[in-house]
């Protein structure tokens, strides 16, 4: 059972770091440097958990969050000191973040998903 975690950031290196950190047998990490691609795919195959960078090329993460299904849990990841946000994120994570900060969140959702699947079966 895989947890689908997406990370949207216009910086490729940060996408790579995210992927390196959190990809595992249980977690399927998918990164997007284009928020438009993310929005497109989300319509077909939405993620279980979404991490959005605030400052994207041509848009803000906040705007992207508002376009996505509200059911998707969303976390904002930003280098800004105090980004103006409208969307009620579950948490705002500031760059540079510690791996364990996100580990805990991902692990929490992984546990929840595993628990749900177990209940279903």
């Amino acid at each position: 059972m895989l947890l689908k975690v997406w990370y949207v950031d216009d910086e490729f290196d940060l996408c790579e770091v995210f992927s390196d950190f959190f990809s595992s047998a249980e977690v399927e990490v998918k990164t997007f440097v284009s928020h438009l691609a993310a929005l497109q795919e989300a319509k077909i195959n939405p993620p279980d958990l979404l991490f959005l960078d605030y400052r994207l090329k041509g848009a803000t993460g906040d705007w992207v969050a508002q376009q996505m299904d509200p059911a998707i849990p969303k976390y904002l990841v930003t280098g800004e000191a105090s980004p103006p946000c409208k969307y009620p994120y579950l948490k705002v994570i500031y760059k540079p973040y510690r791996r364990q900060d996100l580990d805990e969140i991902i692990q929490q959702y992984l546990d929840l998903k595993q628990k749900a699947q177990k209940n279903a079966s």
């Binding site: 790579e16 950190f21 280098g79 980004p83 760059k95 540079p96 973040y97």
Partner: peptide, 21 residues
Amino acid sequence: SAGVAHEINNPLAIISGMAAN
């Protein structure tokens, strides 16, 4: 400063992440 923070924090995040890996 807000923008500057972003411009510093982003590469710091890269450095931090890459170094950890």
